[in-house]
Design a protein around this nucleic acid. Structure first.
Lengths: 205, 205, 205, 205
DNA sequence: AATGAATGAGCCTTCATTCAT
DNA sequence: GATGAATGAAGGCTCATTCAT
């Protein structure tokens, strides 16, 4: 696991891994640096050689996944890409849901940490407001409008359509990864089901 | 706010209120008892006269809302009640969503605390497993089946229908109360919209 | 047990009894007033209505037994009394040992407390120096000299004879009452044995 | 003073010394860790780097002298040693008394602490029951029996003879070291006196 | 006389962080 | 780079004591 190592020493990696485990298990402020050190098998001081403070260690774990989360949306011509690649809105939904699902499954614990700590760390909320919202919302909105113009979507405020779609997708991802991760999920089937639901609701025919 | 006061002294109420504020703002373990005391305008010792430990104080705040959350579902003949009262599934959804929305709006900060701390406190998870799941899931499932038999709902596993419906409703409640509480929401309209979405999805016609 | 009640209220007696138990079990400073209150079945405040401080409560328990301990020796004409009453030194020893033994058995726990706390409370040490030593040592010394003059005792410094005699007697009392109180002691026999030992040692004639 | 230093840091030694002083002066539970730290000239946290708890610090001081106390008796062939080395019981007594006296004089304050705290710490009582009694009583009893068989001692239960002898010796040691340490004691003379007393009592000729 | 809520000082312990080695 | 002893501030909690009722 750990972070994209680049020039990390082996101890540094062990520290990060230990920190992720601990933060995910007990939360940021209930985790002590000495506990991280112990779990990583390094001396207490070693942590502070690499990260000036506990918070810096925390941010170094959590910040990259915000960036990674945003990355796919900020590709130049993201909009165009989708326009060409996906013939219909359901295709688009399917792609996004699959993509997000793998993302969460790859970065599970860190995302858990992130979700839990966002309300308590101004820096994180800031990053969200500055990066995630504008970078992600814009492109998606354009896509929504695009499909609305093609008559594939009902005529509601794009933000509303986004919220509804995200609710359903997030609902699945959270149930699947955090609430009942031990169930035997058939992701393909469930993705399809979620997409169908978003498109047609629960009424028969 | 505070808890149903009953025989609480005035200081006790101030302690609870201060604790709710602090826990909601910084999380359980980042909140110190001295901070709570200061905010409540009491001596630190006073807290421990009423609650043996910090955790007991915490649970005394959070446990009652779990009970309150479950309460409406455990009314005897809950199932029958709905069967008679609500002619159609949309009616039922509307009622539930409105009800939960008021519940969250009344107990906002405590629910925020609860949501955040559940993963870190075995006792809470226990209570959820023992009370919420069995007491709530059963009755709802019967209702779902009832409407399926009347042909108003597609033929999927009730648990799936529940998950999808909850996703949409929770999506609204969370956005409405926690993410963008400052928007000028028209609850009636949004409830209607959510219900329509659950029933018919996003396809036009 | 409790102290000679005089005008003590029932609660006061319960407080004293509880305090004696607690002090004997855990020592003065490891015992909390709240614990005493609980054990006595009174409110915390009640203790302080009768005794201004914890220490005053403590002294009110421990001081009287110092007085009681000294009492038999300060009877006027104590010396004369013994001279007339006891024909020989062994008679005297027997009387003293029996007397002290009953004294300890009657005031067991308080004496235990006293012994333990003497080194830590200047007031107590003071009382000892002022009352016990002078009042007790003088009379006894006169008796020793008396028997030495009658040729019943070897010619050593009276203080040494006292020390040796006390060692043996205290050795029995302590073993009997504190170290092995559960043994089936035959006090009469043991008293005799101690007296014989003091007089003739361990050599077989 | 301090404990056999081995690999102790200088600060650790200062902590132990300070703790011994404090415990001896005020007793275990009346001594605060902050006081020990102050006396040792260390930060309070430093104490807990070396000893997990106050109690562990306490035991690390007191446990070794129990071991040291027992040590001389558990030499292999202790019994035989004495049989050969000491021609008579008085020789044996003299040796033991001298030995114990030096032991107490070397470990004065710690023994004081030990004596005071034994009744309040289950762990210590345990150690006594497990180590001191069996290891010490057995060998001594064999020696007593040996001298009884040689006709040098009266025919009483060995445990009684032990108790009487110990009373006299302990009486001297305690008076000498704790009650009147400032007297000008002539140890050689007093040891001889105690031995003579044990053997022949107080009767002239 | 008795209560028990309230207090704030002080307790033992843990924390994040520093720094000499 | 890595260590771990050392720190002092702060943490949760208990204490003896006070006081309005």
């Amino acid at each position: 696991m750990s972070e994209d190592d680049e020039k990390m020493t082996e101890k540094q990696i062990r520290i990060i891994d230990a920190a992720v485990e601990s933060f995910a298990q007990k939360g940021y402020s209930a985790t002590s640096t000495s506990e991280i050190a112990k779990r990583a098998g390094v001396a207490e001081g070693t942590i502070f050689r690499h990260y000036k403070t506990k918070k810096e260690l925390f941010l170094s774990i959590v910040t990259p996944v915000i960036a990674k989360f945003v990355a796919p949306f900020v590709l130049r011509d993201f909009y165009q890409l989708f326009e060409e690649q996906y013939e219909s809105f359901p295709d688009f939904l399917r792609a996004v849901l699959r993509n997000r699902l793998t993302f969460v499954m790859k970065n599970g614990p860190v995302i858990k940490i992130l979700l839990h700590e966002i309300p308590f760390h101004e820096e994180l909320r800031q990053q969200f407001k500055e990066q995630v919202f504008p970078q992600v919302a814009g492109p998606i909105e354009r896509i929504i409008v695009h499909f609305q113009e093609r008559g594939e979507l009902i005529d509601l405020a794009p933000s509303t359509l986004i919220r509804l779609s995200i609710s359903v997708m997030a609902g699945y991802i959270i149930t699947r990864c955090y609430i009942l991760p031990d169930n035997a999920w058939d992701d393909e089937k469930e993705v399809e089901l979620a997409v169908q639901f978003i498109m047609h609701g629960l009424s028969p025919t």
